[in-house]
Computed example of a mutant assay.
Amino acid sequence: MDSFAIITNHHKEAQSFRKQFPPSSNQFPTSEQVEQIKQAGLIDAYQLITDPAFLDVSFYSFDQVVFSASDQDRTCISRCPLMPLPGHVYCYFEAEVVMPDDLPLDAAISIGLVANPYPLFRLAGADPSSTSYVRNGEILSNGTFMRRGLPTFTTRTTVGCGYDPELGLVFFTNNGRLVSYFLCPDQRAYHAAVSANQPCVLQVNFGMNPFCYNLKDELMARMVDKPPSYDAAMSQPQ
Rank of each mutant, 00 (worst) to 15 (best):
R18W: 09
Q238I: 10
E35H: 15
R18P: 02
A53R: 15
S24L: 00
L215K: 10
S70D: 07
P151F: 09
D186I: 01
S195L: 03
R135G: 08
R147F: 08
T131M: 02
V34P: 00
A5E: 12
K226G: 10
V34M: 15
I111T: 08
A193I: 03
E218N: 12
C91V: 05
I139F: 06
Q236F: 14
V134Q: 15
R135E: 09
H191S: 08
N174P: 03
V224D: 13
I49G: 01
Y133I: 11
S58G: 10
Y133C: 14
L167V: 05
S25Y: 05
L183P: 04
I7H: 00
G162I: 12
C200K: 13
F153P: 06
E35M: 14
P165L: 03
L120R: 08
D51C: 09
M99E: 14
S70P: 00
P228H: 11
R147V: 08
R79V: 02
E218W: 05
S195R: 02
Q238R: 14
Y46I: 03
Y92M: 07
A95M: 07
F62I: 10
T8S: 11
L123V: 04
A124H: 00
M146F: 04
Q33T: 08
F59M: 12
S110W: 01
P165I: 04
D164M: 02
I7T: 07
L85R: 15
F62P: 10
I139A: 06
P29M: 11
M146R: 10
G207Y: 10
Q36M: 12
I49N: 01
P104E: 09
M83W: 06
R177T: 07
P81N: 04
Q187Y: 00
R177W: 05
